[in-house]
Design a protein around this nucleic acid. Structure first.
Lengths: 342, 342
DNA sequence: AGCCTTTATAAAATCGGTTTAGTATGACTA
DNA sequence: TAGTCATACTAAACCGATTTTATAAAGGCT
């Protein structure tokens, strides 16, 4: 472990100017008409001593950090964790590092985090934005930094985003339940004004309206403490014993819901049928297996990072914003099987 | 959104030197005997224009980045995602950002990532190290950067780490199964030479040896493609139909195992009892609920970040390395209920 | 009065790069 | 033969902070 080489060390060792070294290392040798022989000598030494430019010095001069800020709602949520992982892989390939953080969907926290990321001079943002953050995002965009949103978007902001067809997804799931013979169907979700949540609720309502059925909507406030989710759910389900089916708005509330159903001794789908948004192991392995609306996680991550990289790589050329809407898959399992006539 | 202020702007606006501003902002006003009135004026302007020092310039000069490198095996794994989240919260509180990455347990990839982190001048490392990375870690430590490991450690390296009592945990779980009347108990895990995995296997073997029972060990190579885990498991279980119980070495192999058992139509615990390492929703919600060895995730994260922050904050004073071993909890559920005599 | 301190602040060097503006040399042109 | 141009580099400025070194002014002492 010899001490670190700087560009000056390289230049001195070869008795040339650091300017030349810099040009060579930045692929501007041709443009600057630097002799091939010299280029070779520099490259050789650089490799030999494993010289790596100091990113801070570079960043200070160029204003670029080769870092992407990834703001998710909660990195411990499997949906976000999986997306983060896929984005990470692609970003690393392209030489970008990820600075990440969990916003908890809190506007103030997000605002502060945006400030920190800007301080750190991230080159671009990927975010699942909380509400009321429009102005801050607008500022970022105005200052020339690309922003790609996912999972949800801000209708008042014109930017790139990648979401799924939430409304159709719950519409479709609800219709499926209706076709299976269920009538008293509830939609249970977290309280939220965000696009993805509003859309999911609307899809449900649309299907119920079409079928001329009364809508049963229950919204629960999100909380890190699971008990504060389970309890109101429990109370609600006890009070509405006549419910025949439930559509859950997210994997998390779905998981909590399953716990409650288990506690209440309700059998699925005989007592109550279930479909949840998001699909993962808990639902597949559940007895009976739970029908779920699967988001195309790989495609979402791929689209998000592609959009951002495109913006980063051709910063000058005015590229139009893109809004990408991907389709979900309704994975039907036993939990939404045909209603047995009483 | 006015343009960014630099320390020079502040200095010029007040007609003072930027040196003075720097001293004031770094709390060295007293030491440098700077007048209280001037301090107040500087602070006022700083607050007014919301001046924030450029971390790159600061980092370039000081060599510190206020960034912690977090290297986990796979951020999409719930165990690591949860720990990452808890660490993140505490690090942010203290003004540190997190640069993170997934190593996939690959030595080469990890080596490269360490290089990237060092380039970025992270102030410290938190890692779940893969095998054969001893030399690289030793280099980090020699260069004066603190390293805290968790989940596993490298016996040849003297550093801080936080792990759980793996050996006792599986020993205890296996003994429980033995006490419940099971005899032909298998230990199924991922192929690994890492301490945590070796210890888990040893705990199982110890219990079986004590009970004078033959050990059944099956190791599967890890793969991101789940099918490549499920298939060999399936084959193994078909071949060893006489098994009465299984201890799974990790949540992931446990989850895959449950899928296989389901596919094979084996009922739990009648056909085969199950206990898995790690505890999370899949196991709690499973029918029947699956017994699991729960790791104290909060305590692990808390210990890890505390150790690191302590090292970061008192870098000069030689602090001894600390090895922290936390206890797991064996959550007994139906899946390991008393063996019914045939 | 002259010299030494102390006080309060500022100038300049530095970190390690990138970028702008030159410069020395030889070939070619008028 | 002097001027222009291309070639192959380099010196110096710059990014925005921290840190070392310097200095003007005031006070104390003999």
């Amino acid at each position: 472990m010899t001490k670190k080489y700087s560009i000056n060390d390289i230049a001195n060792e070869l008795n040339i100017s650091k300017t030349t070294v810099s040009f060579i290392l930045n692929g501007r040798a041709k443009e600057k008409r630097i002799g091939e022989e010299l280029v070779a000598r520099v490259l050789k030494l650089v490799k030999e001593v494993n010289y790596r430019p100091n990113p801070m010095a570079k960043g200070l001069r160029t204003g670029k950090s080769n870092t992407i800020g990834l703001m998710v709602e909660d990195i411990s949520n499997p949906f976000f964790a999986n997306i983060a992982r896929l984005i990470e892989d692609r970003a690393y390939e392209k030489g970008y590092r990820l600075l990440y953080c969990s916003t908890d969907n809190k506007t103030d926290k997000t605002r502060e985090l945006i400030g920190m990321f800007r301080d750190k001079h991230v080159d671009g943002f990927i975010m699942a934005p909380p509400k009321d953050i429009e102005d801050d995002v607008q500022d970022i965009i105005k200052s020339g930094l690309p922003v790609v949103m996912f999972d949800r978007y801000l209708p008042q902001i014109d930017t790139d985003y990648v979401v799924v067809n939430n409304e159709f997804s719950t519409y479709n799931a609800t219709r499926h339940l209706l076709q299976q013979g269920y009538k008293r169907i509830a939609f249970i979700s977290f309280t939220s004004e965000q696009t993805q949540m509003v859309d999911r609720m609307n899809g449900y309502k649309l299907a119920m309206k079409e079928a001329k059925q009364k809508a049963f909507v229950k919204e629960v406030d999100f909380n890190r403490n699971e008990n504060l989710i389970v309890e109101p759910l429990n109370a609600y389900l006890k009070k509405h014993q006549a419910l025949e089916a439930i559509v859950f708005g997210t994997d998390h509330i779905g998981t909590c819901g399953l716990k409650v159903l288990k506690d209440l001794g309700l059998s699925i789908p005989n007592d109550v049928a279930v479909i949840s948004f998001d699909d993962y192991d808990v639902f597949k392995l559940h007895t009976p297996p739970v029908s779920a609306i699967a988001q195309p996680i790989e495609a979402i991550a791929e689209s998000v990072i592609s959009l951002l990289l495109k913006k980063l790589e051709q910063k000058n050329s005015e590229q139009p914003m893109q809004k990408i809407i991907l389709s979900t898959t309704l994975n039907l399992r036993e939990s939404s099987a045909q209603l047995k006539e009483a």
